[in-house]
């Protein structure tokens, strides 16, 4: 197995994963989407709300705001696995408060920066997410309980978006058949082909999404698009709560934990079978 990084930004990653099957790539994809935990607001206690939006509307908006947190330093429990029995305590819940009021003349926008966290290191990833707009003489007072959750429970806990992989594309141009009509350059919206001198050449082979549109427009049939089935082109974005490398490491750890559990269960079942 080999990983070749193409690009790595704080919020997104793209890499080539070679010598793996698609099933393996899919395991990583599914684990990162559904199993890697993240922190978002789950319960909202509305103390006062005279804003134009309903309590539920605001609670839903608050839930979708991704929170910045350090998964290893925070050491939060999942609420249903916590000693408190699911009521909510310091070990499984982070409290955020919001209190905003307007006088008779002004109207303001309540932003995510108005959410005040009780735990250091936990805050909304962006300070300019509009939550609601308050008109004159309106007030909003909330208490929010954030907890750890998994993507399979609700999409707001998904740490990643646009997570996916594709087969490794190998576009080739048959130089003898090519008439340099440049139709493929116009057809490809991803900019795979480029004109260098007076000849068409493949400039960005990795941009190819295997849509095969260039094959349709190429009259002399000079283009072939091959696939390397031992390689996958993997890319995803994170919502900011976790960085891409942590997300990948965590999903790897979770897959290993599942395999360990499977091994233990299998061994104990076999041992029981032998005794009886």
């Amino acid at each position: 197995m080999d990983i070749e990084l193409i690009e790595l930004f704080p919020n997104s990653i793209k890499f080539i994963l070679s010598d793996v099957t698609l099933a393996f790539a899919n395991a990583i994809r599914r684990t990162a989407l559904a199993e890697v935990p993240s922190l978002t607001i789950e319960d909202v206690y509305v103390l006062k709300n005279t804003s134009p939006l309903f309590d539920e509307f605001i609670a839903h908006r608050l839930g979708l705001i991704p929170l910045k947190f350090d998964i290893d330093a925070l050491e939060l429990n999942f609420r249903d696995e916590c000693d408190c029995g699911g009521i909510g305590c310091n070990l499984c819940t982070v409290t955020l408060t919001l209190s905003k009021e307007t006088d008779a003349q002004t109207s303001i926008v309540v932003y995510s920066s108005d959410l005040i966290s009780t735990q250091a290191g936990v805050e909304p990833i962006s300070s300019v997410i509009p939550i609601v707009k308050l008109g004159p003489n309106q007030a909003l007072e909330l208490e929010c309980m954030a907890q750890l959750g998994k993507g399979k429970e609700h999409a707001k806990w998904q740490p990643v978006s646009a997570m996916g992989y594709q087969a490794f594309p190998i576009p080739t141009i048959d130089k003898e058949k090519c008439t340099n009509c440049l139709a493929c350059i116009d057809a490809c919206y991803r900019g795979v082909y480029q004109k260098t001198g007076d000849k068409v050449q493949i400039a960005n082979p990795l941009n190819c999404t295997l849509c095969d549109y260039c094959l349709e427009v190429c009259e002399p049939n000079a283009i072939t698009i091959g696939k390397d089935s031992t390689k996958v082109l993997f890319s995803f974005e994170t919502n900011g709560g976790l960085d891409p490398s942590t997300t990948l490491t965590k999903s790897g750890e979770l897959i290993l934990a599942k395999i360990d559990e499977f091994k233990k269960t299998l061994e104990s079942t076999l041992a029981e079978e032998k005794e009886s």
């Binding site: 939006l53 509307f57 908006r61 979708l64 705001i65 991704p66 995510s112 990833i125 962006s126 300019v128 997410i129 509009p130 609601v132 707009k133 999409a155 998904q158 978006s161 646009a162 974005e237 919502n239 900011g240």
Partner: peptide
Amino acid sequence: MIIPIRCFTCGTLIADKWDEF
């Protein structure tokens, strides 16, 4: 009503870009 926090389709945060947009 008010700009949705995340993209309906892919779930990326978009509300933080609304003011600048």
